[in-house]
Amino acid sequence: MSRDIVVPGGALKRAAPGFADIDWSRPWFAQVAARGMRWQQAASRSAVDQLREMNADAASTVQTTGRGKRLAFIPQEDLPPDTAYEAHIAATGCVPTRHNLHDFFNALMWFQYPRIKAALSARGSAAVDALGVGPTRGGMRDALTLFDENAVLFACAERELCTALRSFDWKTLFIDNRAAWGERCEVRCFGHALLEKLVTPYKACTGHAWIVDVPFAYFSWTRAVRDAFLDEKVARALIEGSEFSGKMFAPLPVLGIPGWWAENEKPSFYDDAAVFRSGRRSGVTPDGKI
């Protein structure tokens, strides 16, 4: 857990979470725990060791970035001045990386969902090529950043559950269909800022859900096969889809997911209207369904 530190005047202040605070037994970290624990040990020694461990993994794969460049990780200070982050990755394959949790989880996602990360990089760099780097990022880059930072993948085989999510119908999604989780729907965390927040989870922690239609057979596959399926399908949608905006996401309070937080075993957990807000939304899912 996060440490308390003493600030001038003797007051206690909560310290920012660090590498030692990651609890790999949490369900949202399960997908990256094996590699993450190894990287965590390196990161706890030094920034140099962290990058060395990341690059050793990159060298042992054929992982590439959005324009086919071989993936590598470099210190943040090696990013040339006045160069856009996305453009640098596209041109060189090198991901500027700081010695912190945010960039640690970002790097993990390059291995967990390499096609999605490459697709985001390709679209982001294309947007920079088309519009340049101005005082504002623009709607496209904002939506890409939202996905990269805070997305969860909501894999679902039943339309009713997708509709419940888009309609803020938490009772249908989390209470009436509790048994559906793991059998007809599930969530994978993707956004690295979201994963960083979940080191010290709190009830209002909310991801932006990207809905992925999957076959019922999906839930009989191994975790690795499911992740590969999601990686390929979502990446293809990101590359081929002409429309892309923040309206394509649905908010999902992640601690409401059955099995992810002990307190949500009680139905009253979902009565908190400040977290489980009411409302309706319109729009399309990533594959065009209403």
Rank of each mutant, 00 (worst) to 15 (best):
A224F: 00
L173V: 04
A33S: 11
K117F: 03
V32C: 12
A34C: 11
E86Q: 05
C185Q: 02
F229S: 13
V214P: 06
D271I: 03
T136V: 12
V234T: 11
E196V: 14
W28A: 05
G241C: 12
D227Q: 12
A122P: 06
F216D: 14
K247V: 10
A34P: 11
V254M: 01
A30P: 05
F219T: 00
R115W: 01
S121M: 07
E186L: 03
G138M: 04
G36M: 07
L131D: 12
P258K: 00
G182L: 01
G191L: 11
G246D: 08
R226P: 00
E186C: 00
S282M: 11
Q31A: 14
A91E: 13
G283K: 05
A143I: 05
A143H: 03
Y85M: 05
F229I: 09
R38P: 07
F168P: 09
N106I: 13
F73Y: 08
K247W: 10
T145L: 02
S121A: 07
E183H: 15
E77F: 10
T92C: 01
I5F: 02
L144H: 00
F244M: 14
G66K: 00
I5M: 03
T206K: 03
A59M: 09
V133F: 10
L12G: 05
T285C: 08
W261G: 10
T92Y: 00
C94F: 10
Q50L: 15
F269V: 04
A30C: 04
A87V: 09
L146W: 09
H208C: 14
I74W: 02
N150T: 15
W261P: 10
G66I: 01
S125T: 01
C94W: 11
W260E: 00
A179K: 14
F190C: 08
R45D: 09
P81Y: 07
A42F: 08
P253L: 02
S268Y: 06
R159L: 01
L108V: 11
E232K: 15
A217G: 15
F219C: 02
P75D: 01
P27I: 03
A30M: 06
K69Y: 06
F147R: 13
V187E: 01
T200W: 13
V275M: 06
L108E: 15
I290E: 12
S121N: 15
H192K: 13
F244N: 14
R159I: 02
G259E: 02
E196I: 13
F168Y: 15
A47H: 06
G288F: 04
A143T: 02
E186H: 03
F269T: 03
G259S: 02
T285N: 09
E243A: 13
P114W: 00
G138Q: 05
A42G: 07
P135R: 15
L153Q: 04
G10K: 08
F249H: 06
T61S: 08
F111Q: 07
T145S: 07
F19C: 06
S46V: 00
F174L: 06
L173G: 03
C185H: 03
G66E: 00
R3A: 13
R38T: 14
V199W: 10
L144F: 04
Q63P: 08
A15D: 04
D23C: 14
A262R: 14
F216P: 12
N177Y: 06
A250K: 06
E149V: 14
E77H: 13
V152K: 04
G124L: 01
G18Y: 02
I257V: 03
